[in-house]
Write a protein that binds this DNA or RNA. Structure first.
Length: 738
DNA sequence: TCACAGTGACTTTTT
DNA sequence: GTCACTGTGA
């Protein structure tokens, strides 16, 4: 194929095929040289292709050593895809470092563990473990409160804030934040483990403070590429800056319109201000869309154009034709299901497949109606994102035994398994054992061995059994392995000799669960690793960093049920975006930045559709066991009416669909008949003194409206306890009148 | 230490 | 409607 250089217009007949198939913008992005590059890649514009081609181009054409290239993504799936596709063009690319941010952080910390003050065998705590850890440090607070605090601490880490950062008070209103964060950090450092935030923050700190590490690292990585850059947080941005220094070429690819993880710390401004922070950055926009028909892109464009603070892009479809997207204004969820079923069946009649179709929703709870009805109506389906294999109790139990073997200071693991299955070591005994470890400063196993003598009866025997068990497993793990036996049989032995398998077999019989099968699945997964301390450590890290079920995504022919968030990066020939109702999507308390993020989420949802797009909105929605009357989402009102075909339910009488403006009034909450009015809503405001039947006197520190449950009131009580309530549903909380 | 019932809360969630 | 947590009683 003959083509011209996009810049000079000079024909370049000898471009290799992997470059000649790119469009001019893509090609100039691939060949760009200079200080830095920001690629603004609209949905479906081939950004993964550009980034992988660029890696291959640098290696093949520019003589860059693959080892000096670092490419980071946010998901393991994206990292895998990047590795595969780059290697498919140029096999040398597989020597480049292509990882998720967090897996890069773990890789970096293990290589520099001494400098970072960590053992190289650290394991990684997930949010559940974090909560257990904090709860152990402040048992007077409830677990759920600790969970909330842990979330705040994680946000602080996303923001790159330390317990002693001056900015901490500005970012978090809770006056206790600093103290609790410091307490948490101390406790975490004592375990020798790290959390997800540390995987970003600690490498950054190391680069900032350790000159030798900084020099060595900067010498190595000359080219840094970042995918889905709009999802990066402040700490990640900081890490990039430190990695790049003045010398590296940095190329980020992203779409400010697809930034949907603000609530998890993502900072859109990272992309908006990238050119200012990295002076000399060039910008290339990819606006040709290869996925959807223009009729679909226009709808997406209408919606997102209502956001301020955009870099601004207009997607142009390469695919001509296509029909108008359809909006169905329906009576209730049952009609929504029926409508979806009809769309699905029509698609099949027209020669399509079930797997072409995705049904999208804002909240996981919405999948239930579909799950209940689909089997009966003959629609095969699969739910994406629901199976959290590694979050399951039995799997976490087994993982805790493994973590204990890796790191004898792992307090969270110890607490989880020392009495599971039951060995007669109760809460009091566990406290004694942990107290001994804290007092002596030694690891949990050796201090437990000493403290066991002070226990009596069952607790003493149980502790000794536990220690003997761990010791036996430890010996087996590190014993010579000349035949290269895999980790599988070892894990099998672990779940058997610990009694976990028997314990969960009993549970299976009582509750009809699949726990034993899940443990067996875990044994299977372990078979890919060698039986050795290093093998175990590798296995654990892989699991900790990639919680998606590694076993293949079953390619069954089924309709996909999926949250809008989970669709990012995916595409389907036919998309039905459901539940487009004010109060649900967006919620009524969402305004400003949050509202814009919801709009971007809608944009993401729409741009998943290749051929056909359907939107549904229900007049009545059942939520939390109540029935609510709703208005269509305000986002629907932002679409130029001529671009969509609107279908109204025949049944609809009055109000809905009869010329009512979109998204004007929120749900008129109508819990089954009673006309509850929020007459007292104004009484619930921050600063007001309240009294709770159980907790006593307190002060409201925050009030947030909810779509359907009235105001949500956060109260700090004199006891120091903090709790939230829906005044609408509880009679125990009243405002003090003085 | 365990089992049960009553109570309170209730988005999204790459790692 | 459902789940997880809390507190009680055995």
């Amino acid at each position: 194929m003959n083509r011209s250089n996009p810049i000079t217009g000079v024909p370049e007949p000898d471009l290799p095929p992997y470059l000649s198939s790119l469009n001019p913008e893509q090609l100039s992005a691939v060949r760009h040289e200079g200080k830095g590059l920001l690629i603004l890649a609209g949905a479906g514009s081939g950004k993964t292709r550009v980034i992988t081609t660029k890696i291959a181009y640098l290696v093949r054409e520019k003589g860059i050593e693959p080892e000096s290239i670092l490419a980071v993504t946010f998901t393991n799936k994206a990292a895998r895809e990047m590795r595969d596709r780059a290697a498919a063009i140029e096999s040398e690319c597989s020597r480049a470092v292509m990882r998720t941010f967090h897996s890069f952080g773990a890789w970096f910390l293990r290589r520099n563990s001494q400098a970072a003050g960590l053992d190289s065998n650290f394991t990684i705590y997930d949010d559940d473990d974090q909560t257990t850890l904090l709860h152990g440090a402040m048992p007077q607070n409830s677990r759920s409160e600790c969970g909330r605090m842990v979330q705040a601490i994680s946000r602080a880490k996303d923001l790159g804030l330390e317990p002693d950062s001056p900015d901490l008070s500005a970012a978090f209103s809770d006056p206790e934040m600093r103290r609790i964060y410091a307490l948490y950090e101390e406790r975490l450092r004592n375990t020798g483990n790290v959390d997800f935030g540390d995987l970003i923050r600690m490498p950054a700190r190391l680069l900032r403070e350790d000159e030798a590490v900084r020099r060595r690292t900067r010498q190595r990585f000359r080219v840094i590429l970042v995918d889905e850059y709009q999802d990066s947080n402040i700490a990640q941005f900081e890490l990039l800056r430190l990695l790049a220094g003045d010398g590296a070429y940095i190329c980020v690819v992203g779409d400010d319109d697809q930034s949907i993880y603000r609530f998890r710390g993502a900072e859109v401004r990272n992309i908006l201000s990238f050119p200012e922070i990295f002076p000399g950055t060039d910008i290339i926009k990819l606006e040709r869309n290869y996925r959807s028909y223009q009729s679909i892109l226009d709808v997406a464009g209408d919606v997102v154009s209502h956001n301020s603070g955009r870099l601004g892009k207009k997607l142009v479809a390469e695919r001509t034709g296509g029909s108008k997207p359809k909006l169905a204004l329906l009576e209730d969820q049952d009609s929504e299901v029926a409508y979806c079923v009809r769309v699905c069946k029509d698609h099949l009649k027209a020669g399509g497949r079930w797997s072409d179709i995705a049904i999208l929703y804002r909240t996981n709870a919405q999948s239930l109606t579909f799950e209940k009805e689909f089997p009966r109506l003959g629609i095969p389906y699969r739910i994406v994102g629901a199976s959290r294999f590694y979050d399951r109790e039995e799997v976490k139990d087994a993982l805790a035994y493994m973590a204990m073997l890796c790191n004898p200071r792992d307090e969270v693991a110890f607490k989880r398994i020392v009495n599971k299955p039951s060995r007669g070591v109760g809460e009091t005994s566990v406290d004694i054992l942990l107290g001994e470890a804290e007092a002596s400063g030694s690891d949990l196993l050796s201090s437990a061995a000493r403290a066991a003598d002070t226990l009596k009866g069952k607790a003493k025997a149980g502790t000794r059994d536990f220690l003997a068990l761990i010791q036996g497993l430890d010996g087996l793990l590190s014993s010579p392995n000349p035949d290269g036996e895999s980790l599988g049989p070892f894990i099998e032995r672990l779940v058997r000799s610990s009694g976990l398998i028997e314990y969960h077999r009993a549970q299976d019989e009582i509750a009809g669960t699949q726990k034993v099968a899940n443990l067996e699945e875990l044994v299977n997964a372990a078979s890919l690793y060698p039986r050795s301390p290093e093998g175990l450590s590798d296995f654990l890290e892989t699991i900790e960093l990639d919680r998606s079920l590694s076993s293949e995504e079953v390619a069954a022919d089924a309709v996909t049920l999926i949250t809008m968030h989970n669709t990012k990066g995916l595409e389907f020939p036919l998309v039905i975006a459901t539940g487009l109702e004010q109060g649900l999507f967006p919620r009524d308390d969402e305004e400003g930045e949050e509202l814009e993020e919801q709009r971007r989420l809608f944009y993401v949802a729409i741009t998943r559709a290749k051929d056909e797009l359907y939107l549904t909105s229900c007049h009545w929605r059942r939520l939390h066991g109540r029935l609510y009357e709703t208005m269509p989402s305000r986002f629907l009102g932002e679409i130029d009416g001529s671009r969509i075909e609107t279908l109204k339910a025949k049944k609809s009488v009055g109000g809905y669909g009869s010329g009512a403006p979109f998204g004007q009034r929120p749900i008129s909450a109508r819990p089954a008949g009673t006309g509850v009015q929020d007459k007292e809503a104004s009484a619930w405001r921050a600063g007001a003194a309240v009294y709770h039947d159980d907790y006593g006197a307190g002060v409201i520190i925050k009030v947030s409206p909810t779509p359907s449950s009235g105001p949500l009131v956060v109260v700090r009580f004199e006891t120091g306890r903090q709790a939230q309530f829906f005044p609408k549903f509880t009679k125990k909380l009243e405002v003090q009148r003085s």
